[in-house]
Design a protein around this nucleic acid. Sequence first.
DNA 1: GTCAGAACTGTAAACGATTACAGTTTGAGC
DNA 2: GCTCAAACTGTAATCGTTTACAGTTCTGAC
Lengths: 331, 331
Amino acid sequence: MANIEAVAKQAGVSVASVSRVINGTAARADTEARVRKAIAELDYQPNSAARALKVRQSEQICLSFDDLANPAYIAMTRGVGRELSATKYRLILSSAFSSVEEIVKHLQTMGRGFADGLIISPIYSDERITKLIAVLQMPVVLVGTLPDGLDVDNVRVDSSAGIALAIEHLVETGRTKIGLINGPLNTKPGIRRKAAFEKAIKAAGFKFDKASVIQANTFSPEAGYFAFSEIDDFSKFDAFVCANDQLAAGAMKFASENGISIPGDIAIVGIDNTDMASLLHPTLTSVDLKAEERGEIAAQLMLDRLANPDRASKQITVEPKLVIRESTTKK
Amino acid sequence: MANIEAVAKQAGVSVASVSRVINGTAARADTEARVRKAIAELDYQPNSAARALKVRQSEQICLSFDDLANPAYIAMTRGVGRELSATKYRLILSSAFSSVEEIVKHLQTMGRGFADGLIISPIYSDERITKLIAVLQMPVVLVGTLPDGLDVDNVRVDSSAGIALAIEHLVETGRTKIGLINGPLNTKPGIRRKAAFEKAIKAAGFKFDKASVIQANTFSPEAGYFAFSEIDDFSKFDAFVCANDQLAAGAMKFASENGISIPGDIAIVGIDNTDMASLLHPTLTSVDLKAEERGEIAAQLMLDRLANPDRASKQITVEPKLVIRESTTKK
DNA sequence: GTCAGAACTGTAAACGATTACAGTTTGAGC
DNA sequence: GCTCAAACTGTAATCGTTTACAGTTCTGAC
């Protein structure tokens, strides 16, 4: 309720003095004391919207992604948050709970006035998001593959190389009949992982068989479980790469319930190397796509851009790393 | 860059008309068309801070919790998000990445101007947060146990009853030497679970032994693993309740690595019934504390309060539910 | 064509802060 | 006590919207 004018009156000074006390500009000790007293008495808190309007800064950075349930994004958030916590910027999160439209509108409103910068990691391959980014008049850092024609700061991971690592490892450990449990094809990772898988299989000297790709319709454990349950003949396979750890966990659950030995009958490689990988039984070999590190880098790019609005945009690529555990090697 | 005045000039109308077109108040078709054209030509987006300042609403609700890595909070977020997505309110998340001070400051700034309401679920038992809530001049819904003297909307779960359910189940299935892997004692759940455990053990007719409580220093799998590794003599126990599923997962990992059979030697009950419970091996019996439902209810309380600022505060309690799986029963 | 009423539009005053700029006070040095 | 610079303070404009109010333009009935 109380505004700066009320505080000024209570303290017997001008609004300018109150503002200066709040913002730490020089003031006589006497003045400062009276202002602080008045602030305390009135429970005054400055209105951030008014401040943001005037100084054209909100000191907030918005991180936006599509799937809160996906641990990889949580890791990314951790990276961004850690990097930001030493600065004046606060992190706010925006995650879509229904449609792409919702997220576009959310970001648009946030854009002018409520956030100084946007770090976005879109999972869905959707025109509208690309268009939004192009139009948004604020610093944007995109995490993930940069859509054509968009020239913004970017950090990505070479996930194809990650899939190749997984395939090489499987081949080296003697697997020859390798399948892919892929994520949905309306997502960017879904599209890219399928292509990368085909390429890596061929590079390993096998011929690529369409039937070796099983499409899940989400990135969830349930989808992984269901994908495995649809396989009629497991003898056609001796290994699977799964598009993320959650799919892998679901598949492993089905295997354990149905007497399929892992890694005895089938080896499994997950992707993302999330915390769960080492908790599963057997522990899960997984390709670390460095989500947390990408988050850190994204935040650094953003801070750098905010300090230096006119520099050319930077594109940074992170290298994946294969973490070998029991699901491909035990005994 | 472009503001409403620029649009007005470009369209040859007054700023009031532009504002009306944007906000859907009546306008002649002709006027509307010209305004829309100008908006498109200038890539105009209204400044949210200015709007929020004028209308005294941000249409944002802030959800704040302390531990982003904890799946229970993610579930809660899902509940809040779903409930809010049909309304005009947007959800923004604030999670502390370092100190309590940081979160208090964050919420304070957010408070006046950037958010219309605050849903907060503090895990740390800290004076400063209680004080903040009391002072904050905006609707607050607190998820969790209400600190003394605070009269705000509240939704909580009877977690003591949950622990009692767990103990009863263990006793019924023949366990007699039950321990607790507790979370940190500077957190509210840590404090409450310990007390509830002692009470339930006594209610079951056993005498309570201090040594049966093992303190972990975080709610993470690593802490659970470490807690189990500290136990010198497993023959003293035939069951453990763990303060959350993550601790349970870590403990089970240690057990599996060290030839302790679960549930053969030791039965395990987790708390929260997170997604991971059904993916572990063996699957984990867990007390569902209904985090998602609590999120939904919190959002409903908030919406109701926003529509009806003067009503008395409501306190709602949710009942926990025990979900029995293999870690207490298999064979 | 007139007129009443409805429908629309423009002017200008807010909302609550920040900050040039000009004016006032303070204090040191003589 | 005077002078001068440094230190502080107050006035008022400004940020980009919304909206009450008054003024204007339509519309349709007569």
